[in-house]
Amino acid sequence: MLLFLVRRLGWSVVVLLLASLLTFFIGYKVPADPARMIAGPNASVATVRSISHQLGLDQPFARQYGRFLGHALRGDLGRSYKTEQQVLPTILQRFPYTLALALSGLLFEVLIGASIGLLAAGTRLRAVDGLASTFVLLTLAVPSFWLGIILLYVFGYLYPVLPLGGADAGPISLLLPAITLGLSGAGYYARVSRASLLEVLGEDYIRTARAKGVSPGRVMVKHAFKNALRPLVTMTALDLGVLLGGALIIEQVFGWPGIGTLAWQAVQNIDLPMIMGTVLFSALCIVLANIVVDVVYTLIDPRITV
């Protein structure tokens, strides 16, 4: 296990280096001048050149990237061109909001999706399976931003029982964004859990348990569902890694002050240090999520070795 973790961490460093190199190169080639955006449209050419020189934007690509990498290895991701705030502390300040939204939204996704998948796979009624399939199609077809707007209109405006947006109202502000995020992804979990359960229910040991007189509910929960968990574990861990990097659409709809909103603002302002910081943070979350998946697999199924 220790050797596996060391090997995976080594590859993770390579992935992060490639992600930083690609992102920095794209930012370097973007046909926009951050110095001009900082100075303003009415600034003189001399002022723009002075700002560009102070930021090192007039240096060759290799030198700019090398300087960024050297500072990043010391935990310094630079200062935002727009706000002049340190990038890493700003990201960490937004992280609790993103973490709360990711965990609560993922909880709704798994609970709703896995429950519907379990019900659809375990019942022999065509009507139930049809309703489950309809739910999956609806959640996959309706865009998350549209679903969020509908929920805002109904529960924030028409029947004002929940806040219209932001995080100022406390934990209750999280409810609508989390439900929207959960409903948007629940269809995937329902479809995967149903397919995985149907495959497991066809195995010999399930037929043996039924032949021994084990109740259908016990067969489903204790035997079938446990062995159908691996695809759900993969989806959950990877989704968490992605969501920890920011749920941009949901954050924008509900005015949630997470990392996704921060990244979008950075892109709009050609704020390269903030773009690099949010991309690297997202990549780190995804890489760590992949490692967690591999470790959890060995705990679920001891037959798997790493």
Score class of each variant (00 low, 15 high):
residue 2 L to F: 13
residue 9 L to T: 13
residue 12 S to G: 15
residue 19 A to R: 06
residue 20 S to G: 10
residue 23 T to L: 07
residue 24 F to I: 12
residue 25 F to N: 10
residue 29 K to W: 14
residue 36 R to K: 15
residue 44 S to A: 09
residue 46 A to L: 13
residue 47 T to A: 15
residue 54 Q to R: 15
residue 55 L to N: 13
residue 56 G to F: 03
residue 56 G to Q: 09
residue 59 Q to E: 15
residue 60 P to H: 00
residue 66 G to R: 09
residue 69 L to P: 02
residue 71 H to W: 05
residue 73 L to C: 13
residue 75 G to N: 08
residue 80 S to F: 08
residue 81 Y to H: 11
residue 85 Q to S: 14
residue 90 T to M: 06
residue 91 I to D: 10
residue 91 I to L: 15
residue 94 R to P: 00
residue 96 P to V: 11
residue 97 Y to N: 15
residue 102 A to P: 09
residue 104 S to I: 05
residue 105 G to I: 00
residue 107 L to Q: 03
residue 109 E to C: 15
residue 111 L to F: 12
residue 112 I to N: 07
residue 120 A to D: 02
residue 122 G to T: 05
residue 133 S to G: 09
residue 133 S to T: 15
residue 138 L to F: 08
residue 141 A to T: 14
residue 144 S to D: 12
residue 147 L to G: 05
residue 147 L to M: 11
residue 148 G to S: 08
residue 149 I to W: 07
residue 152 L to G: 13
residue 156 G to D: 06
residue 163 P to C: 12
residue 179 I to R: 11
residue 183 L to H: 10
residue 183 L to F: 13
residue 187 G to T: 10
residue 190 A to K: 13
residue 198 L to M: 13
residue 199 E to H: 12
residue 199 E to V: 05
residue 200 V to P: 01
residue 202 G to R: 07
residue 207 R to C: 00
residue 213 G to N: 12
residue 218 R to Q: 14
residue 226 K to R: 15
residue 242 V to H: 12
residue 253 V to T: 10
residue 254 F to E: 04
residue 255 G to Q: 07
residue 263 A to L: 03
residue 271 D to H: 02
residue 277 G to H: 06
residue 279 V to L: 02
residue 280 L to V: 06
residue 281 F to W: 14
residue 284 L to W: 05
residue 294 D to R: 01
residue 294 D to W: 01
residue 301 D to F: 10
residue 302 P to T: 10
